[in-house]
Write a protein that binds this DNA or RNA. Sequence first.
DNA 1: TCATTCTGTAATTATTTTTATTACAGTACA
DNA 2: TGTACTGTAATAAAAATAATTACAGAATGA
Lengths: 136, 136
Amino acid sequence: MISSRFPISLHILTLLDDANGAVVSSDYLAGSININPVLVRKEIMNLRKHGFVDSKEGKGGGSFLAKSASDINLGDVYKSLRNQNILGQSKNEPNPKCPIGKQINQHLNTLYSDAENALVDNLSKQSLADFASKFK
Amino acid sequence: MISSRFPISLHILTLLDDANGAVVSSDYLAGSININPVLVRKEIMNLRKHGFVDSKEGKGGGSFLAKSASDINLGDVYKSLRNQNILGQSKNEPNPKCPIGKQINQHLNTLYSDAENALVDNLSKQSLADFASKFK
DNA sequence: TCATTCTGTAATTATTTTTATTACAGTACA
DNA sequence: TGTACTGTAATAAAAATAATTACAGAATGA
């Protein structure tokens, strides 16, 4: 299943788009998503690192989109969440003495990265603006 | 990340293909995958339910492919693992008082099922025979 | 026929991953 | 200079996964 971080990130971005440039606090975001504010701040940290949002510290601070919603594409958001290669990464360690087990991870990884590319390509067809427009 | 059940199922199927019709015990499978035999038997139960494999009880028993490896396609294997719709299914319950939160799951689900279709279509390009041939 | 070697399956426990909570330093505003 | 935020670490709680134990039932073959 797509990491639950993806819906959180998308939710944040959608709310920020909805705020129309206004600064939004992590507490407000957490309230809408219904998760802990610290988790929100962690996701924002990632979104900021990837240039999707920016934040302002201190009183009256919060986050806002760092670029136009039409310049943020959902495939890129998805990709921003992977450490290396999200989808597969079999952490399982098959028996190296088995001729199949020995090489299966290598083949699985190829399979996964192809499949994941197809998924990302699909997500990339949509911008945050497209997605957010569904709420209007 | 794709459920870790997918690699397990694929591993099982690949080993059964490799066995060339011979009956393979869940202990042997578990040994190659390096997981608990009971987990293997559970996956086999699912694979059997979907007609990919069949099993023989009792002494000398085990599992074997129920159809030709070229008639088993990886997209179908993937699909056999989902309860309803694997990928997304935001279990998160956003705040219903928030105009965005209220409807986001509905939009996420659409997004997910499109993306998942793209992924499954990609996997469907490959049969078990194609996959297994990489090991030779 | 009966000991043996399997499967099927439930119940329980252990482990890992995910999420929430607490805490507090630092920043900016008024 | 108090207040309302962010940033971040550390810890605890909860949930999801996986392993283990256990045992009934099926098929085989000595």
